[in-house]
Write a protein that binds this DNA or RNA. Structure first.
Lengths: 231, 231
DNA sequence: AGGTCACTGTTTGCATACAATAGACGAACT
DNA sequence: AGTTCGTCTATTGTATGCAAACAGTGACCT
């Protein structure tokens, strides 16, 4: 992390190294550079990122809490593995939280319909970008856009507790998508159109149903690719 | 932590200090010794617990991820505050996850009805203990028993992702209960009887409804005590 | 041949030391 | 009197050093 002026190096507005490290490790895990099961050696990471082991260790605690790492005391940290069983677990939780997020977001859309809705407009922009030039983005970029869109829904709810729980969940989902990725299929994106429209309509019931439908649909698309190691 | 033989000091089977510290800090927060808003000074905690700042800092990252601490870069860590708005947020999420947990637990009960169910028997034992001698426990103990019972439901599901998300949520609920505690009311406990019976019956729909009903009931009992700072 | 034991390198756990920043206090200036 | 600036202290951020534990290797015994 060498003094390359980390986006506001001096003075006041710079992030602690633990946050930069956590962000970078997340990226390396999500894009597959650090594959599932890979062992993380603190010294190597420290050297790789040009920091001491201390920020590394703190970042490891954060990523552990987010579920990206499996840590065993005195035996090291490993990139978490996501087998079919765990993917099923994830979808079961997501099937509870995504409809909730959509419902609360729709309520917000209804409450604050008069003023501008930065969340919905950004969501629509992402969707437009992807659908107008679907081939101009790499898989990683597509996954990131997908994550941003779902994160926006949760952020729109204004429920800070839901946000804290759901954002890591969405990132975990991005990871899964990245590994077995149907993000190239046009259907995968057009579905979001319905979801966003439902939220924007301000009808909580409709939005909840759309959220549920969306998760079920994604699960149905991904499940077949995960067989073999069933629960 | 001075060589006071910290419960398995030598050899192999001892927890890292960060875990002991995190557990202790959680306890101090939950029992009110560290009140909401309190600033945590790393040096003081280190001296108080007899360790260096390093395990303290790692524990802080963990508790931050669990939502017990609010951390601002270079300005310190503070015990999180739970106002009425945030309590509402918590209940909204809980209203999604608790029924899910009950439903999946019931499914497990049905699947594995032949062999013994350590989870349900432990739950029933807790309930019996509380109801036979309701006055013999302190508030903190009651809160801990309540937490254990709900944690058992989630653990029973076998869904590791749900467990990872829900256990901290339950603890956060314990915190709320501890602050405005209706745990002395007999109704609060008899309700759990229905919930456990529903899970044990193996009927997912019934259990889900019981879980939902329970959360709604608790919210109804707590909500009035939180007024003033509504959303 | 198989298993057990000691030995050694690697890695994690913890402590200490130093650097940098935030916030408070007070002096000087207007 | 109020404001601004500098200084000083408490506290967080980061680095380094050392101890303890794990994992692999090979010798030795049975």
């Amino acid at each position: 992390m060498v003094p390359t002026t980390p986006a506001g190096s001096v003075g006041s507005a710079h992030l602690p190294l633990r946050d930069l490290v956590a962000t970078e490790l997340r990226r390396l895990i999500l894009d597959g550079t650090l594959p599932p099961g890979e062992r993380l050696i603190e010294d190597r990471l420290a050297e790789l990122l040009g920091v001491s082991r201390n920020p590394i260790r703190e970042a490891i605690r954060m990523l552990e809490a987010e579920g990206f790492l499996d840590v065993t005391a005195r035996r090291g940290s490993f990139v978490a593995t996501l087998d079919a069983s765990q993917a099923g677990d994830l979808f079961e939780v997501r099937l509870a939280l995504e409809p909730l997020g959509a419902r609360l977001a729709a309520r917000q859309a209804a409450d604050a319909s008069q003023n501008s809705q930065p969340h919905t407009s950004r969501m629509k922009q992402i969707l437009t970008d992807v659908q107008t030039s679907p081939t101009s983005y790499g898989l990683d970029t597509l996954a990131e856009m997908h994550t941003e869109m779902h994160s926006l829904i949760f952020e729109m709810t204004g429920n800070s507790y839901l946000i804290a729980m759901a954002i890591p969940m969405v990132k975990r989902g991005q990871w899964l998508l990245r590994q077995s990725a149907p993000l190239r299929e046009p259907d995968a994106w057009s579905e979001h159109h319905w979801l966003i429209a439902a939220i924007e309509s301000g009808d909580p019931e409709l939005a909840e149903a759309a959220g549920r439908h969306h998760v079920l649909s994604v699960r149905g698309r991904i499940q077949p690719r995960l067989d073999g190691a069933g629960r």
